[in-house]
Design a protein around this nucleic acid. Structure first.
Lengths: 237, 237
DNA sequence: GCCTACAGTCTACATTGTAGAGAAGTTGTT
DNA sequence: AACAACTTCTCTACAATGTAGACTGTAGGC
């Protein structure tokens, strides 16, 4: 979508700037954003920076580390203010922000979701652990016991990521088509086996991701608040 | 590691059986389960089947299609009984089943989560759409309006996938270590920046994924039931 | 000047997916 | 049995990838 968000001269490399980790990573992110994960090869990135591919290894141990760096860079765009007294409002805001972040960098989402599956907590890029730490902080400062804060975090973040995946999966295949079935490519499904899905095509076609996210978060947060010893409010079973 | 010889039919020399899609896919799944996604190369899989790598292209158009096939195969292990009258119980059961499926095939989870992001709904392997269709069916049969069924599905499945990702991410790095910090590798985190996370190490180290999932699902389902025009009575925990 | 440290480059190689032509095997028809 | 029309499997080949290792350049301190 957007052509340029990062300080990168892709076609006209300003020949002799000294490279830096930030430069490399933001060029990598730009490449991923504009052409997808597969386009991020060492050679391509080197070319983008006007440098030999091998020079990149000064700034990332290998391709996997490069991917981790990109994840980290993206997650750093997420602002968390840990001393907001209204934890629910804060979590709602973060959810919206993260959703927008994902929509802005859809090609990075697979990384965000996948890389932690192959890296133990303690070995992850610190930037990717920051949201966890800060949300825990937020909740504990709001009065939750640490154990309960962890529960809230898990339910919240789990749902949040799940929603983002959901929303990104339901993308429209052909926006010019005005028949809902065709827009989503659902006409290929055998009507006998997928009657419900096909019938829901019009509803699927206009999906308000933000509202949906909000509703889920609300249900979850108020449910959690009702089940746990609460800091502020008072609903008690 | 073990040294590998090339001209050798290594573990499964089922020499002269005719290949079939099922055979190929289940060999692929076995390979992924035992050695991870990266081990699934055409050559390796061919070797595993005692066939030339090129023969595989008869059963999958390319590597991506092979991955899709593996996803499908795994999702087919999930049983959904669409005419259960108790929709909440059914959804709870499916959630537990899917969780166990994910624990049984952790290396496939990245596929389940990632492949749909690059394939429009209508072009996905039918097997991966079956759960969606059947859960919609289940909900509509239980009395939900189709639009509401979709809402419930999205919140439910979103949370479910989110939880699975969460749980798989928090794996233990060194099970022999009895100090919680070390078990999770958290000792590498700078104490100044990650006090909460480090303090929670003991809690993190013993994580009851099933209970956590159950609690989230309960909150979500009862919350949804309360917000939507309901078929039966509401289930109260 | 020379020395050391670091940044970037060059060459080389093993591994990957897969195109294209052909061989081997199977099945149907006579 | 013989042939033909298939399907299935194999061989060869190639371009692209990540990255090891040795090398070249450059910047600053003495």
């Amino acid at each position: 979508m957007s052509p340029e968000e990062h300080p990168v001269p892709p076609p006209t490399p300003a020949k002799k700037t000294r490279l830096s980790r930030e430069l490399v990573l933001s060029a990598a992110l730009a490449l991923v954003d504009s052409e997808g994960l597969d386009a991020l090869t060492m050679r391509r990135l080197g070319q983008q920076l006007g440098r030999d591919p091998m020079s990149l290894y000064r700034y990332a141990d290998n391709r996997a580390a490069l991917l981790d760096g990109v994840s980290e860079l993206v997650l750093n765009e997420l602002a968390i203010i840990p001393d907001d007294p209204d934890w629910q409002a804060q979590l709602r805001r973060i959810a919206h922000d993260l959703r927008l972040l994902a929509l802005r960098h859809p090609n990075v989402v697979p990384l965000l979701v996948t890389r932690p599956l192959s890296t133990p907590l303690g070995l992850r890029p610190l930037g990717t652990l920051r949201p966890l730490e800060q949300i825990l902080s937020l909740l504990i400062d709001a009065g939750f016991a640490p154990v309960d804060a962890l529960h809230v975090y898990r339910a919240y973040y789990g749902y949040l990521y799940g929603h983002i995946l959901n929303e990104l999966q339901e993308f429209v295949v052909d926006p010019d088509e005005n028949e809902a079935l065709l827009r989503l490519g659902l006409h290929r499904l055998p009507p006998k086996d997928f009657p419900r899905l096909r019938a829901l095509a019009p509803v699927l076609a206009d999906y308000d991701g933000m509202a949906e996210l909000d509703e889920g978060i609300n249900i979850l947060l108020s449910g959690l608040a009702a089940h746990l010893p609460l800091p502020g409010a008072s609903a008690k079973p």
